[in-house]
């Protein structure tokens, strides 16, 4: 039995400890906001927070989160500045990668409240978006972080 917190609630799951956290969230706990994209930690669609750090749940064995705090997209409040900023910039297109993007952005802003473009490049380049919302993601992060959002998500 593996016991851990998900979005503040204790969960006990009886699965093989090598099962990736992603599939426990999706198939056992019904939390489908966290997405499967690659299974290899290459695309970031499955990003969740483990004890506050952004991690790829598709390559994190659930055995490793025993006793830890996991937060998923469903656990980020609706009034969180990042979610509000995402709405204000109308970032989403197909939307599939966005939970992972938001989880990475929330973690970035928690550690760097006013990130530079270079910070954003470094924190967000593990999250793929096939639709091409990168410019808006950059703007939304700057706006949520209080920096003036520049048109087109520019860099210097």
């Amino acid at each position: 039995m593996i016991v851990f917190l998900v979005n503040g609630k204790e969960q006990r799951v009886d699965v093989s400890p090598d099962t990736p956290l992603l599939w426990v969230l999706r198939d056992k706990l019904g939390l489908t906001g966290t997405k499967y994209g690659c299974g290899e930690g290459l695309c970031g669609a499955c990003t969740v927070h483990i004890d506050g750090r952004p991690e790829r749940s598709c390559i994190t064995p659930v055995g490793d989160v025993q006793g830890k705090k996991v937060v998923t997209i469903e656990g980020i409040p609706e009034n969180h500045p990042v979610k509000k900023s995402w709405l204000a910039q109308d970032v989403s297109q197909c939307g599939y990668c966005q939970p992972g993007q938001i989880m990475s952005a929330v973690a970035l802003l928690a550690s760097k409240p006013s990130p530079t473009d270079a910070d954003i490049d470094s924190a967000m380049s593990g999250n793929l978006c096939r639709c091409g919302t990168y410019g808006r993601i950059r703007r939304a992060i700057h706006a949520a972080g209080g920096r003036r959002a520049r048109k087109g998500g520019s860099r210097s």
Binding site: T32, G33, T34, K35, Y36, T72, I73, E74, E78, K83, W86, L87, D90, V91, S92, G95, Y96, Q98, P99, I102
Partner: peptide, 14 residues
């Protein structure tokens, strides 16, 4: 469709 996609409640096929 933005709110559902940002909440994580939008239902994709998967």
């Amino acid at each position: 469709d933005s709110p559902a996609k940002i909440k994580g409640t939008a239902v994709f096929g998967i």
